[in-house]
Design a protein around this nucleic acid. Structure first.
Lengths: 231, 231
DNA sequence: ACGGCGATATGACGTCCGTCATAGGCCCTC
DNA sequence: GAGGGCCTATGACGGACGTCATATCGCCGT
């Protein structure tokens, strides 16, 4: 929960602010604040008033939402440079989902009024927001289509394939995904229960497809993942 | 597939253009074209280049996407005044979904370059786009949460409750929803199969909960719908 | 060390719902 | 009127997956 000043270098990490002139970035730095979160700490909760724009500087964050049945589903996992809650802060809607730090994370926060003033003076920022929103929208429609009409195992396969492509690193015997997710979180990502998640991961462990490590996953057999994702 | 000129009155119907000054609306009218579609006609298809901004003037349109398994899921049903394909035309991405007219429909089209020029001269338009996108994003996250962890019947109940609130009209014995959807389309809206959709609707017909009419549905027993939606 | 707690694991059981098959009604064409 | 196509309807069947119960392991605090 530490607070701190902002360096220009930090601001340049967020794609949203990269194109802004250095002089203007200095003005942005004046109104922004840094805030740090422990692993497991809540950054904002579904229903909170959207009173600040948040961008991740470092760390990984899961954005999730409660289902009508009281379970939770993970909408997205964001990393350094990604904006958070841009949806809410614009028009002052409440956050439609919650955000929680998966690792020690530091975020940049800009109060709603300050952010709003920035938008008015910098059309480029608005364009950045627009394109970010369209990308998320397309991603969500993809997830929506994927959730229906395919079996759980196929969703698991697609999840790991996506993780490989996004944050996977070559390692001995396969690709390493440096993201320690619990079975519960895997279940929340794929819209199933923890037992089913455990069963699939156990079987894959035995069949040498994906191994669970202390600080992530090691994808050993990408070919069968591709195959399962098809069915 | 008729073409035609644009009246100022027509433009005012789209919330996006309502706040623009009449003089500017005239400029917009110069670059916009009208196009009519029969029931069942495709307005644009998933993967098409996003080369035009489209807004519905009259009629109802379903926006849908193919699932990996080859089925289709309906993302949203739009009506008069709603923008279509705003996601794609910005940044020139291909359409992430398809759109098809559910009724005889007329749309307003603005070519990508013209639309882009309008955006540059009218920050208010950009703001309108932004708020529209955030609303859709929130709606999609809600649908995503809803699809997982609840049984099909509950999804049906929630669908009809939402239709009642959005476009329902008081009628003898209940609320009438003037939207003739086939069993297949109901299935696509809830992420299930046509057989299951038929079974549920048949049972509800017998139990006097929802009656299927020639040109829509008559919700007779809202209380049990509320109840089913909870479970 | 001990007990408690959370995560992982595994089996038994039930059921929702998807798949397959068949049949009737309606509309249109020939 | 015959025939074909599409939508609606209904039954039989099976399997995937959710639910419940229980066991093990590691970790933490007192």
């Amino acid at each position: 929960m530490a607070h701190g000043p902002i360096s220009d270098d930090l601001l340049r990490r967020a794609p949203l602010f990269r194109r802004v002139t250095p002089a203007d970035r200095a003005r942005i730095a004046e109104v922004a604040h840094l805030k740090s979160y422990e692993r497991g700490e809540l950054i904002f909760a579904e229903g909170d008033p959207g009173d600040a724009f948040v961008a991740i500087v470092e760390g990984r964050v899961k954005v999730f939402k409660a289902t009508p049945a009281g379970k939770e589903i993970i909408l997205e996992i964001f990393g350094g440079g990604d904006p958070l809650g841009a949806v809410a802060v614009y028009e002052g809607n409440p956050f439609p989902a919650s955000a929680l730090a998966l690792e020690p994370t530091t975020c940049l926060r800009i109060a709603r009024e300050d952010f709003y003033r920035l938008l008015e003076h910098h059309p480029a920022l608005v364009r950045g927001l627009l394109s970010g929103l369209t990308i998320r929208l397309a991603e969500l429609t993809r997830r929506l289509a994927e959730l229906t009409g395919s079996r759980v195992e196929a969703r698991f396969a697609r999840l790991f394939l996506k993780l490989c492509d996004q944050i996977g690193k070559p390692a001995e015997g396969g690709v390493f995904v440096p993201l320690p997710l619990s079975r519960q979180e895997l279940a929340d990502l794929t819209g199933t229960t923890i037992e089913t998640a455990i069963r699939i991961m156990s079987r894959w462990q035995k069949e040498e497809v994906v191994r669970t490590d202390k600080d992530g996953f090691l994808v050993l057999d990408r070919a069968t993942l591709d195959e399962v994702a098809m069915a």
